[in-house]
Computed example of a mutant assay.
Amino acid sequence: MAGTLYIVATPIGNLDDMPPRVAATFGAADFVAAEDTRVTLKLLNHLGLKKPMVSYYEHALHHGAAILERIEAGESCALCSDAGMPCISDPGEQIVTEALARGIHVVPVPGASACVTALAVSGQKTGRFVFEGFLPVPKKERRERLEVLRTETRTILLYEAPHKLRTTLDDLIKTCGPDRSVTLCRELTKLHEEINKTTLGEAAALYAGTEPRGEYVLVLAGAEPAAEEAEAPTLEDAVAAARTLMEGGTPPSAAARQAAAGTPYSKGEIYRQLVRGD
């Protein structure tokens, strides 16, 4: 009988946030598939566990087939990323996709996720949001992605590394303007946690003189919805408005002229309808 693939969330920074079920799953699994085995080893040591490990990092995804074959042979696997919920902006998603295609039982063991944690404390709108992860690196793809986000009305969640933060802020300013609201969340749940709600322009000015440190989640306010254009009135609407004016004592010619203002119809069109009594 085939085993089970467990998708195991790990703390995003503070090991005291370790859910009991996460620790129990690691303890029961036959082996662990880790993004970086060195990082996961520290976690297992914290739990007092020793487990066989294999890396599924992007450059070692040829291990994916071997992982799935072991599960099909009856072993259970706990798959985890360096921090947070695996398979979110993470190469583990390919393993899950292939596991489901093979009919392998996939079980989530949920926990903290940096993007949702940041959203909750951002002070930005939370009713509708879109997760973008890391922006593309190639310039053309990056420009195209930013252009799409320029008019996005939902709150936007972005990940960014410290050495790329300044460039990303500059690109967002060019696309969205310096006054767009943004919350920068740094080192969430860790000792130097910071949550700074500001604007893109103010954030760029801050980091022009301050070295970015730690991993960032940017929670960017969505664009203001475009004002809906008022539906153009019909000829019947304009004629009805003219008749209302006439009932108030306005002569037909003046009523037609006033009713025509702001409509695609001429005074003459409206006047003819009034005279004909249509």
Rank of each mutant, 00 (worst) to 15 (best):
G262T: 11
G127M: 15
F129S: 14
L165I: 12
V96D: 02
I173Y: 08
S181P: 03
L206T: 15
P264M: 10
P11N: 10
E69W: 10
E231R: 12
P212R: 01
L100P: 07
T153L: 12
K125N: 08
A9P: 03
E69Y: 13
E215Q: 11
R272Y: 06
M1A: 15
E229P: 08
T198L: 10
V96P: 02
I67L: 08
H62F: 10
K125P: 04
L165P: 07
T250S: 07
L119P: 03
V116I: 14
L157Y: 08
A73D: 06
E231N: 11
A261C: 07
A24P: 01
A34S: 03
L61W: 06
D170V: 15
A226V: 11
V54W: 04
S122A: 08
D82E: 06
M1V: 12
L200E: 02
D170T: 15
L191Q: 05
G214N: 05
L218S: 15
V32Q: 00
S181L: 11
I71L: 06
E229V: 11
L158N: 15
A242S: 10
P108I: 05
T40N: 01
G201E: 05
L206A: 15
V107A: 14
L15Q: 05
D17G: 13
A230V: 11
A120C: 13
G123K: 02
L158A: 15
K125V: 08
Y271T: 05
H59A: 10
L188H: 00
A223G: 05
V107K: 11
G13T: 01
L47Q: 04
E147Q: 13
D17M: 09
A83K: 01
L169A: 14
L49H: 01
Y56V: 12
A118M: 12
E269Q: 15
P178F: 03
D237A: 04
P251K: 10
L100I: 12
L191V: 10
E269N: 10
L157K: 11
C87P: 02
G27E: 08
G214C: 13
G13Y: 01
Y265N: 08
T234K: 09
G277M: 05
E93M: 09
A255E: 02
T151S: 13
V109A: 02
V219P: 03
C176R: 04
Y6Q: 01
E229Y: 09
G201I: 06
A33C: 03
A238E: 07
R128S: 14
H62N: 14
R143T: 13
R180C: 06
L41A: 02
K197Q: 02
A34W: 00
V106I: 14
P108K: 04
M53H: 01
R186G: 03
G127S: 15
A83G: 04
Y159P: 11
T40S: 00
